[in-house]
Design a protein around this nucleic acid. Structure first.
Length: 577
DNA sequence: TTAGGGTTAG
């Protein structure tokens, strides 16, 4: 319903804008001005602005000898209004008509290539850049850096970037953003450090990418530095920068700071609303997430598909099943949004976590006609493990292993389920299957940030210079924990491939090492924040409750799915994860 | 004599 409304609206908007343009065009012909390339260029741009590529193209075909400027403007406009294929077509027309391209044409067509992920085409255009002598043009070079970075060719992007004699802020931003977008957050932060040293002035786009990198790393120290800089230099907190800050604070463990930023922003859009709802959700604050969602419906922009993923996920992590069901129904009923696979995954996850395994399974089976995605089976399998339903778990795992036989995580989950049921014979079978297929358990790692520097630990890691002190301190902590009543949860390591690794693995999981290091390196009373790439294991979850009491510290762990705040012997997730 | 490259939520 809603999309139909927007379609009609767009259609009528185009129509109402087109008429005066057509009148203007008619006027040009009547007054014999239709030979003026200047006026025709203007008219082409305006047609493009209305979204009517058909009229733009038709007008172009009537122009006998377009010049370089007209082509550049046309390529630029078609790219700007998201007709990348037309942009590439007009570029081709220009080259084959032997019109000498300007540097402007290259910036624009490279952007169009990036939009369609046309790596091969972009490479050809890179050759043209060199052939036409624009290899050292600052704008074209920045365009190339941006193009290669967006296509994930970070090495090539970096080569062009390093070869620049003058590096504009946009070139720096493109390179930093490329690293961040492809998950190389450390490289993004590192390059930002070099940018600081080089004396180039940052702008809000620099900070948006750096803040996203901080979010990935849990690097709140650097994130706060950026926030301070923005405040001290009077940079306007636009909606994009504000959203990046909300996301950074939420993902670095400080959701109340995220809320402060949200409240201080002059303008909110659907992304900023979604960011704060999602932030509350990942910390298990479902009530606050739903209150904001209510407020959004009352005075914000209409929620979109991403907003509903955040809402359903917030309900899942807080056990708000009824509200989740209602939101799922409202999605189509009130907002005309068709649930995508991600929404179904969130529903299965929510119902499964709440122990409503039959309903979750039914939701999954109802999608049989379209074929439920592996992610739905994964959510279902996770729920079976959580609620110790071995029979259903095995049934679900069979589907999942048939669909994705190469994902080691599925085998690990299944072996956990067998281990819980005491079926060590089956654990062994699953383990052998993994060995036969040459699959290895995904390596878990945890990071902790101290004085704006991020330290990474993996299981049994001994690469750190202070390894001896860290292990000694961790052993002391575990000893004190045991004296206080902690019992190791050995199930958590049943999936380790080698027998002798188990005891060792349990004692020196990456999150325990990162916590020990964090405690050693920070002052008493300071909160420790750890980021883990996988879900945290049950044993570490149990141990950290004790450690939070022994050290009188708040310990925050962000795992693959959500946040855990350990304080005074309990966790904010209430063991509901 | 008209114009450019970079940035948010899952």
């Amino acid at each position: 319903m809603a999309s139909k409304y927007f379609l009609n609206r767009r259609f009528s908007l185009s129509n109402s804008c087109l008429k005066p343009l057509q009148q203007f065009h008619a006027h040009l012909i009547v007054s014999n001005s239709h030979q003026s390339l200047y006026l025709l260029t203007k008219l082409l741009t305006l047609y493009c602005t209305t979204g009517s590529i058909k009229h733009t193209h038709q007008l172009f075909l009537t122009i006998p000898s377009p010049d370089s400027f007209l082509y550049s403007t046309l390529i630029n406009s078609t790219t700007k209004f998201h007709f990348p294929l037309h942009s590439i077509y007009f570029y081709h027309r220009m080259i084959s008509s032997c019109v000498w391209p300007s540097s402007y044409a290259f910036s624009a067509v490279l952007k169009a290539c990036a939009e369609v992920s046309g790596l091969l085409l972009g490479r050809v255009i890179h050759c043209h850049v060199l052939a036409f002598g624009y290899g050292l043009n600052v704008f074209v070079q920045a365009g190339l850096v941006s193009f290669y970075a967006k296509c994930g060719e970070l090495g090539v992007a970096r080569k062009v970037f390093d070869g620049m004699l003058v590096r504009s802020v946009v070139a720096w931003n493109s390179m930093i953003s490329g690293y961040e977008q492809y998950g190389y957050a450390n490289e993004a932060v590192g390059l930002f450090g070099r940018m600081r040293d080089s004396g180039v002035e940052f702008d809000s786009a620099t900070f948006v990418s750096v803040l996203s990198a901080c979010s990935q790393l849990g690097a709140i120290g650097l994130g706060c530095w950026v926030h301070e800089y923005v405040r001290n230099h009077g940079l306007y907190l636009n909606v994009v920068l504000g959203t990046a800050l909300i996301n950074m604070y939420a993902k670095c463990g400080n959701v109340s700071k995220a809320r402060e930023v949200f409240d201080s922003m002059e303008e909110h859009n659907v992304a900023s609303w979604t960011a704060i709802i999602s932030g509350y959700g990942m910390h298990g604050h479902g009530k606050e997430a739903m209150e904001l969602f209510k407020l959004m419906k009352f005075r914000g922009p209409p929620p979109n598909s991403v907003t509903f993923i955040a809402v359903l996920s917030a309900c899942a992590h807080a056990g708000l099943v009824q509200q989740g069901r209602e939101a799922f129904a409202a999605m189509t009923r009130d907002h005309g949004l068709v649930p995508k696979m991600e929404h179904h995954v969130a529903m299965v996850d929510m119902l499964g976590r709440a122990g409503l395994l039959d309903e979750a399974f039914q939701h999954l089976k109802d999608l049989d006609s379209v074929g439920p995605a592996p992610a739905m089976w994964t959510a279902m399998l996770g729920a079976c493990k959580m609620h110790k339903n071995v029979n259903l778990g095995v049934q679900v795992a069979e589907h999942l292993l048939a669909a994705e036989p190469e994902i080691s995580g599925h085998y690990v989950l299944l072996s956990n389920i067998y281990a819980m049921a005491g079926r060590t014979d089956r654990v062994e079978v699953v383990r052998n299957m993994m060995i036969q297929k040459g699959l290895k358990k995904q390596v878990g790692y945890s990071t902790v940030e101290i004085d704006q520097k991020t330290y990474l630990f993996s299981m049994g890691d001994k690469s750190h210079v202070e390894t001896t002190a860290i292990y000694q301190f961790l052993d002391e902590l575990m000893q004190q924990s045991r004296a206080a009543g902690y019992v190791p949860v050995s199930e958590s390591v049943m999936h380790e491939l080698e027998e002798e690794e188990r005891e060792y693995a349990l004692r020196y999981h990456s999150e325990k090492l990162a916590v020990a290091f964090g405690l050693l390196k920070t002052k008493q009373g300071m909160t420790i924040t750890i980021v883990k790439n996988l879900r945290m294991c049950e044993d570490c979850h149990a141990a950290l409750k004790f450690i939070s009491v022994i050290c009188s510290r708040e310990i925050i762990i962000r795992d693959k799915l959500r946040f855990h705040h350990f304080q005074n012997g309990s966790c904010s997730c209430m063991d509901y994860w």
